[in-house]
Simulated scan of single mutants.
Amino acid sequence: MKAVPLKELKQELGAISNQELQELCLKLSRFKKENKELLTYLLFKSSDEDAYIQSIKNYMDEQFKIINTKSYFYIRKSIRKILTNTKKYIRYSQKKETEVELLLYFCEKLKNFSPSIKNSQQLINVYNRQLILAKKIVDTLHEDLQYDYKLIMSELQDNYY
């Protein structure tokens, strides 16, 4: 089945009743976990962005604690999973400040991770790519926020790699 363009979907959604719209949303949430997570964010978390950011930071803290450190293979695999999930949560918010905050927190956790990521070029590359991405986003923000985030970024870059 071919998907209909967004414009047609919008027109059709405007023509249906609130009850039908509610039923459609519930059906969507049953099919994919991501749809349910997005609906949860939109209904419950979007009003308090700071609490949402903190919950994702707590998630990252927990995930970094349970990483299998027996080999760099497992470390890389776990860190890629954490980053993938973090980016998924960033997509739900679609706010640049949230994205920068979470990317910088991820980099901070990665920099302070033990055993050091200096022994794995792949992990160093992941770290550097996220810092570069955060820098690009920071450059689009308001000047006051840029200053604050650039201070954090300079700490993450100084004397490291």
Rank of each mutant, 00 (worst) to 15 (best):
T84Y: 07
I90R: 02
Y89H: 11
T84L: 09
E99A: 11
K88S: 12
L104V: 10
C107G: 01
L102W: 03
Y92F: 15
K81N: 10
L102V: 09
I90Y: 02
T86C: 12
K88L: 15
L104N: 03
N85R: 13
K87F: 11
F106N: 00
E97S: 14
K95L: 12
L110F: 03
Y92H: 13
K109S: 08
L103M: 13
T86E: 05
K109G: 01
N85W: 02
E99R: 11
Y105N: 11
Y92P: 02
F106L: 12
E99F: 08
T86S: 07
C107M: 07
K88V: 06
Y105E: 11
Q94Y: 02
L83H: 10
R91D: 14
Q94K: 15
T98H: 04
L110Q: 03
T84I: 08
K109A: 07
L83A: 11
V100Q: 04
L83I: 13
L83N: 12
E108I: 04
K95T: 10
N85V: 14
R91C: 09
T98E: 04
K88R: 14
E97Y: 06
S93R: 04
L110H: 02
Q94P: 00
L110P: 03
E108T: 08
Y92Q: 10
E99T: 14
R91M: 12
E97W: 00
L104T: 07
E108G: 03
K81M: 09
K109D: 01
K95W: 02
V100E: 01
L102A: 05
K95I: 12
K95R: 14
Y105K: 08
N85L: 12
T86P: 04
K96A: 15
K96Q: 15
T84F: 08
N85S: 13
Y105I: 07
E97N: 10
F106Q: 00
Y92R: 04
K88I: 09
I90P: 01
T86R: 01
Y92I: 10
E108Q: 14
Y89L: 08
R91F: 10
I82C: 08
E99P: 02
L104E: 06
E101A: 12
L83S: 10
T84M: 06
I90V: 15
L110W: 02
L102F: 02
L83R: 12
E101S: 14
T86I: 13
T84G: 01
L104I: 08
E101W: 01
E97F: 05
E101T: 14
N85E: 15
K81E: 13
I90C: 03
C107L: 04
S93W: 02
F106I: 07
L103G: 01
S93A: 15
Y92L: 13
I90K: 00
T86F: 03
K87L: 13
L102I: 09
Q94D: 13
N85Q: 14
I82L: 04
